[in-house]
Amino acid sequence: MRRLQVDPVTLDALREFGNIGAGHAATALSTLLGGRVKMSVTDARLCPFSEIVDVVGGGETIVAAVFIRIFGTISGNMFVLMSLPSADRLLERLLERLLPAPRKAQEYTELEQSAIAEVGNILSGAYVAAISDLCGISLNQSIPAVAIDMAAALLDIGLMMSGDEENQAILISTSLVHDGNNIDAYFFLLPDLDGTEVLLDILRGKIRHG
């Protein structure tokens, strides 16, 4: 199996990318949620496609997922995944009401799903902006699509559009703190075909040359 090169420069580049994205996201989410939002990057690495489901607790774990397609110099798919407890904490802040927990996938209302989609949109938009900042390339993103279901079932569309299953995704794990609440969100970027390598080359070059 062909593994992408993961050296200290690449890891630095990914962390830098994660931090810049988290910075953008914190600013946007502070406006949405009202009050200060602190975001920290808890993990920034490459993740083989086949192992993405393990990050969220296995293929059958029920998660909230936001799917966004990117177009431009690099095309690919982005997913923002949240556990249901994290999604509930987020919704309680956003909708300013207490929610009964735990709930089944089909018990999330349309309003709650749009709220999750909007936060996913902000997070992925922040990472798209980080790519533009770092690499000087502009990317467009589709409208967000949201679903709550088994992780493996939600992610298969991302795998099949990326061609080779031995390809790797860029994973940025973030922890968002607002008003004493911790909300964990996983951001995955799955470029089409050889996009991961192309993107890493650009990121590494930018970090090395300042």
Binding site: R69, P144, A145, A147, A153, L154, I157
Partner: peptide, 8 residues
């Protein structure tokens, strides 16, 4: 079709 919103 897991994501209903996208018609691609």
């Amino acid at each position: 079709q897991m994501f209903q919103a996208l018609q691609m």
